[in-house]
Computed example of a mutant assay.
Amino acid sequence: MPDSRTPVVLIHGLWLHATSWQPWADLADEHGYAPLAPGWPGEAATVAEARRHPEAVAGLGIDEVTEHYAGIIRALERPPVLVGHSFGGLIAQKLLGAGLGRAAIAIDPAQIKGVKALPPAQLRAGFPVLGNPANRRRAVSLTAAQFRYGFGNALERTESDELYERHTIPSPGRPLFQAAFANFARHSPAAVATGNADRGPLLLISGQADHTVPDVVTRSAYKLYGDSPAVTELKQFPDRGHSLVVDHGWRTVADHALRWLACQGIPGRGTSRT
């Protein structure tokens, strides 16, 4: 019997393993969606294995990761909802702009081409990678202290350290360089079709205490969609950092995303194939 549920493709960003989406996947399933959370190309099935083999993802760029998810989406029976965090949010926007999703939710999305804001906190959060040009070709791990600044700054240290131990993996440095220099590259892989009038609805979510993708960056991205008549909305969560999809408050963010999908007429079951 064909599955009538709407697929939800969960796309993680740098330094978090795909299994970090499990609570979101369970909740989506409860609401009648068909969730899947594929890792990036080359990503091992477990956190432990991914830590043992950082070379498997070294050198990956935005285009390679986007095409990986595009292939997964093309194999689905119906257009999915795309939910992405950090660089996963950038990739979700690229896929939606290319017509490969029914709707997208981009949470603390990495900087897209055209965004000029560059707050000091963002520079500091990216320095573990951007501080060494050789990291373009490497997979880089964060220390617990670096994770706390970039992800867990709005949390108690104990929770930040627990999340670090449970979910973090080495990630390629190349996407950060591509995003950082996007406005200087004519054909940047960080470019998104913000003017596409035919795409599905898009929700941008910002944690207003985020160091890695400060609120001003997400607000600047939102403004870039101003010339498109397609639905684009912005939701800001006060006092939330970059860990907002995995920390103790994840359910508040996920519930808002589900309510937004319902408002867009995209329930989990019985939806159209078009």
Rank of each mutant, 00 (worst) to 15 (best):
A104F: 05
A144K: 12
E64H: 09
E233P: 08
V47A: 00
V47L: 03
G207S: 05
G195K: 12
G207Y: 13
G39H: 07
S20G: 14
Y164Q: 06
I105T: 07
T252F: 15
A145N: 11
A182Q: 04
W21N: 04
A44Y: 08
H248N: 11
L123K: 07
E64K: 11
G150I: 10
A179Q: 01
I72C: 12
Y222E: 15
A117T: 14
H12N: 14
G59T: 07
W21A: 03
F184D: 02
R124I: 12
R124K: 13
A144H: 04
E30P: 05
Y149H: 11
V83I: 10
K94E: 08
V8N: 00
E30G: 06
H211F: 01
Q264Y: 05
G207M: 11
Q178A: 02
E162F: 03
G71I: 06
S141Y: 05
G39Y: 08
P23V: 05
V129C: 03
L203Y: 09
L163W: 01
A37H: 14
R78S: 14
I91G: 07
R136E: 14
A134F: 09
Y33R: 05
T218Q: 07
D239R: 14
I11H: 03
L155C: 06
S86P: 01
A257D: 13
I62H: 13
T66I: 08
D198T: 01
A179C: 02
L176K: 03
D227E: 14
R219S: 06
V8K: 09
P238L: 10
A103R: 00
T46W: 03
G226Y: 14
S20M: 12
R251P: 05
F181E: 10
T274E: 12
S4W: 08
L10I: 06
H68G: 07
Y222Q: 14
H242R: 07
L123I: 10
R259D: 14
N196I: 05
V213N: 14
G39C: 08
S206F: 02
A221H: 08
R51N: 07
V65Q: 13
H167T: 01
P238D: 11
A58R: 10
G32M: 03
N135Y: 09
S206W: 02
H53E: 07
D210W: 06
G150S: 10
A197Y: 04
R138C: 12
A134E: 13
P214L: 01
E233H: 01
G88C: 08
G42K: 04
P172L: 06
Q178R: 00
Y222A: 15
L82D: 02
F87H: 15
A257R: 01
T218V: 15
D239M: 12
L261Y: 07
G39V: 03
L163T: 06
A25Y: 03
V47Q: 06
L82S: 04
T168H: 00
G39P: 05
A144G: 06
C263A: 14
G173D: 01
V115Y: 08
G84R: 08
R269Y: 06
T158C: 15
V192H: 11
A209S: 15
I73A: 00
A134N: 08
I11T: 03
L130T: 00
L14Q: 13
V217K: 00
R273I: 15
R174D: 02
N132M: 02
P41E: 11
E64Y: 04
A191W: 10
L90S: 08
R148W: 04
F181C: 01
S4I: 06
L14D: 09
